[in-house]
Each structure stands twice: as structure tokens, then as C-alpha cells.
């Protein structure tokens, strides 16, 4: 082994240490708790009890999918628009897209609470114009809104990145071969931006399916997501503390996320290998 190898190992040592202490150990603990009972005896009871939360899992996935779809539909035109700007304007706009992310996630979600609540900004405006107030907060809609707002930049950025990487002459070549704007989009831009769309979907779906802050603040306890349940088992806000069931639920959620990202990555790779005719 040469000295360069040793140097390289040394530079990644702090990260390796960090990862083992804060990722590997916690995961091991989660697995331990998930398969033991309160007295440290091996059991499958925790796993069995997960069946009771089927509905919550379903709801979490449904809302996460819904927000991911809205993010995709909203982000693609924005990303496309930005990628057509001249270089300097692109930088400024991308900075504006990222600007909210520089502020604490919790504060931004609280801000939405004051906007959406019964006496919040929207309702006051509506009443000022003689309308009748209506309830927005504490609905599934409000939770989806919160997710879309918080995770939209994670969808815009990767799509924007792949779109800027598309060589202008590729578009010109399509034009040259007879493609009008719609065909260029369908046959060139869209298929070529699939890698960005995939990573955008992953980056939005994963935090959305596991969130608990957004559903707590904007769902007001009415929309209970799997993240909320796990939080409750660990902190005991509404019931008894039970690390074991909490850990089992976390494990299942992790497995779920792992499966979905693997499927996504696989799809991405298929596209990258030039599997022709997918759109043709």
C-alpha cells in the first residue's frame, strides 16, 4: 500500500467514524428494539402489531405520492423555463428557488400555520372582501400543501440540472429532422430529463412519506401519518412510550423507502443504457 492510499484513508476517517456512530449504531439499535420486548427477549410481536397501522401507512404513502405528483407537475415547467434563461439570470433564479431552504424548516411550516388557520391571513383576507371564512388548516389538503411547499426545490433542482446539460444542438437536430415543439418535448426533452425526474421524485417522496412535523402542524392531529405514530411511540406525547413498536414501524418504513429508491434507480439505469423505443 502506498502513502497516497494511507493519506486517502486518513482523510475519510472522520466521516467513516461519524457514519458508524450516527448511522450504523442507530440502525443496529432500531433492529434490536424491533425484535425484542420490554425485557430484552426476542419476539416477533412488534412486527405483528404493525398490521394495525396498515391504514396509516396507506395514508402516508397516498399523501406522499400526491405531493410528489404535484411537485413534479409544478417543477418541470419552472425548471425548463429557468434552463432557457441566459446564464446569469439562471443563477439568480436558482438562488431564489433555494432561498427558502436557507430558513429553518420548522419556522417555515409554522409560518404556513398562521397563514392557513381559522383567523389566519387567508381567512382574514376572505372576510375583508365580504366572503365567509373556511377551514383550510387541519385538512389533508393543508398537509399536502406543506409538503409541496417544503420539498418543491428538491424537485426543481435535479430537473433543472439535467435540462441545462442537454446540448442545444441536440434540440436543433430534432428540429432539423422535422420535429415541432411538441415532438421535441415528447421525444427528446422528456426522455432525456428522466434521470433528473427520477432523482427529484426520490428526493421528494422519501422525506414526504416519513414526515411528522408537517402533518402535526398543518394536519392538527386529524391527519395522522406514520411519522407521527413513530414519534408518539418514542416520545409518548399521546400514549405510552414503546420503543419496540416504534422501532418496528421505523424498520418497515425504512424498508419501504429502500425498496422504492431501488426500483427508481433501476428504472433510471435502464434509461441511461439507451434502451431505445421507450417513448417511441
Amino acid at each position: 500500500m502506498n502513502s497516497g492510499g494511507v493519506g486517502k484513508r486518513l482523510t475519510i476517517a472522520p466521516y467513516t467514524l461519524w457514519m458508524s456512530v450516527f448511522v450504523v449504531v442507530p440502525i443496529a439499535l432500531v433492529i434490536y428494539y424491533a425484535f425484542t420486548d420490554g425485557h430484552g427477549r426476542l419476539t416477533l410481536e412488534n412486527m405483528k402489531s404493525i398490521a394495525d397501522y396498515g391504514k396509516t401507512f396507506f395514508m402516508s404513502i397516498k399523501l406522499a405520492l400526491f405531493s410528489t405528483a404535484i411537485c413534479l407537475l409544478a417543477a418541470y415547467p419552472v425548471a425548463y423555463g429557468i434552463s432557457r434563461f441566459e446564464a446569469r439570470r439562471q443563477q439568480t433564479t436558482i438562488m431564489l428557488v433555494m432561498l427558502p431552504m436557507w430558513m429553518n424548516f420548522l419556522i417555515r411550516t409554522y409560518a404556513w400555520m398562521t397563514i392557513l388557520e381559522g383567523n389566519g391571513l387567508i381567512n382574514r383576507l376572505v372576510r375583508a372582501f365580504g366572503g365567509e371564512g373556511f377551514s383550510i388548516i387541519n385538512t389533508n389538503g393543508a398537509v399536502v400543501l406543506g409538503m409541496v411547499y417544503n420539498f418543491l426545490p428538491y424537485m426543481i433542482l435535479p430537473i433543472y440540472t439535467v435540462l441545462t446539460k442537454i446540448d442545444k444542438s441536440t434540440i436543433e437536430a430534432a428540429q432539423d429532422l422535422g420535429a415541432n415543439k411538441a415532438s421535441i418535448f415528447r421525444r427528446v426533452l422528456l426522455p432525456m430529463s428522466v434521470p433528473g425526474i427520477i432523482s427529484g421524485i426520490t428526493m421528494v417522496f422519501v422525506p414526504a412519506v416519513s414526515t411528522f412535523v408537517i402533518s402535526k402542524l398543518l394536519g392538527g392531529g386529524k391527519t395522522f401519518l406514520i411519522g407521527d405514530i413513530i414519534e408518539n411511540y418514542f416520545l409518548g406525547n399521546t400514549g405510552s412510550v414503546d420503543y419496540n413498536i416504534g422501532a418496528a414501524l421505523s424498520l418497515v418504513l425504512m424498508a419501504l423507502i429502500l425498496i422504492s429508491t431501488t426500483v427508481m434507480n433501476h428504472f433510471d439505469k435502464d434509461m441511461g443504457e439507451g434502451g431505445g423505443g421507450i417513448v417511441g
Binding site: 441536440t170 422535422g178 415541432n180
Partner: peptide, 21 residues
């Protein structure tokens, strides 16, 4: 527009579609 002209171009850097075989 280019797509309505009966001329075709070979571009300097080929400009092939990378997502198609």
C-alpha cells in the same frame, strides 16, 4: 422554421440523441 425546410444538417458535434440506440 427548420422543421419545415427540406434541408438537413450534420452538426459539428454530431448531436445524436443519447437516450436512443
Amino acid at each position: 422554421p427548420p422543421h419545415k425546410r427540406r434541408v438537413n444538417t450534420i452538426f459539428q458535434r454530431y448531436a445524436l440523441f443519447p437516450h436512443l440506440n
